[in-house]
């Protein structure tokens, strides 16, 4: 009996390998046979409003250009998931992969293997190592984000005093990069400011609120909370509001205008930093298609992308524009 189950599972395995044949090579990396191009868009995580907005812009561009768009990404915090999805796409036979890399070095091996199969790689949002992709649609580098956050915080605090950071998880690779750049900027330019603590919130608004409450309590001289993952910004703001310290302790962070509008208007949150997210998705697909068709080549200085017009290219970075600081005055102009 037991042997029979073991045998059947071996049989199943044999079945898989028996009907094994070589990859359908016509579909991989071949863009000039008149078939529709297939572009695969990889977010850092799914079910997240930021990337849902990116997807919206991407779908608009895909419809405009008449290409097929595949959108898939990790639904949990398994660090291997992005690699697995990329490897699945290589086998599926997409023409271009546009990836927002959770893990700069971790994913580069999978992307290089895709390149070897003739698939074009474009990165957006956060880059991989430069040898693993053709172009990076750059809305902000880790350095740019870190410096903008630190400079804005310094301006809000008058360049002195204590501040704290709330991050998603301690292990999140891109946030670790940002924290490094924040700390480098702090050491270089703002000697009178002090980072007292960094707390994780697991991408949970409620946990961010709890941690911010703890921080406010434990560090009474705190002047500013910097929230570097989007759910943490409203979470920290609610904690400051409940503590009755609105305006006394400043709140700033990376987040979406729609999630922070009320707090910004009420003067609890002073600054929300972000870029035009929908445009990022739109530009990424435009660049991906152009790279596959060969109209966008290394060495180009500008790139004309549909409704966005001419975009500057520095080296292999297509520049979307600088991060944007949303404040009380301008937040109502943005609906995402």
């Amino acid at each position: 009996m037991k042997r029979s189950t073991f045998l059947t599972s071996l049989l199943a395995f044999a079945l898989v390998t028996a009907c094994d044949k070589k990859s359908d090579s016509s579909s991989a990396g071949n863009s000039s046979d008149g078939k529709k191009l297939t572009i695969a868009l990889l977010p850092k995580s799914k079910g997240n409003q930021y990337f849902a907005t990116v997807e919206k812009g991407a779908r608009a561009a895909a419809a405009e250009l008449g290409v097929e768009l595949i959108y898939d990404g990790p639904t949990n915090t398994d660090p291997a998931k992005q690699n697995e999805i990329v490897e699945g796409w290589v086998n599926y036979g997409v023409n271009v992969i546009a990836a927002a890399c959770e893990n700069r070095e971790g994913i580069s091996g999978a992307l290089k293997a895709a390149q070897e199969k003739g698939i074009k790689i474009v990165t957006y949002d956060s880059d991989t190592t430069p040898d693993a992709r053709s172009f990076f649609v750059n809305q902000a580098t880790a350095q740019g984000i870190g410096e903008t956050l630190m400079d804005t915080a310094a301006k809000l605090c008058g360049e002195e005093g204590e501040f704290a950071i709330i991050t998603a998880t301690l292990t999140a690779a891109n946030m670790t990069e940002w924290r490094k750049n924040i700390e480098a900027r702090l050491a270089a330019k703002y000697p009178k400011m002090k980072l007292v603590t960094t707390k994780p919130c697991d991408d949970q608004k409620d946990k961010a609120q709890a941690e911010a409450t703890n921080i406010l309590n434990a560090y009474p001289n705190l002047k500013c909370i910097m929230a570097i993952c989007s759910p943490a910004v409203p979470g920290a703001a609610e904690a400051v509001k409940q503590a009755g310290k609105a305006g006394v302790v400043k709140v700033l962070g990376l987040g979406l205008p729609s999630e922070n509008r009320q707090y910004v208007k009420d003067g609890v949150t002073q600054a929300v930093i972000l870029w035009k997210v929908e445009d990022l998705g739109y530009l990424t697909i435009q660049a991906a298609v152009a790279a596959a068709k060969g109209t966008l080549k290394t060495g180009d200085k500008t790139f004309t992308s549909g409704k966005l017009g001419a975009m500057e290219i520095q080296d292999t970075d297509i520049i979307l524009g600088k991060p944007f600081v949303f404040t009380k005055e301008n937040i109502d102009q943005f609906q995402f």
């Binding site: 094994d20 070589k22 086998n91 599926y92 036979g93």
Partner: peptide
């Protein structure tokens, strides 16, 4: 499915 019966896909399934 597309390219399901390929050695690459079997390798993917095993690795993952």
């Amino acid at each position: 499915g597309r390219n399901f019966n390929t050695s690459d896909n079997v390798a993917n399934i095993v690795r993952h």
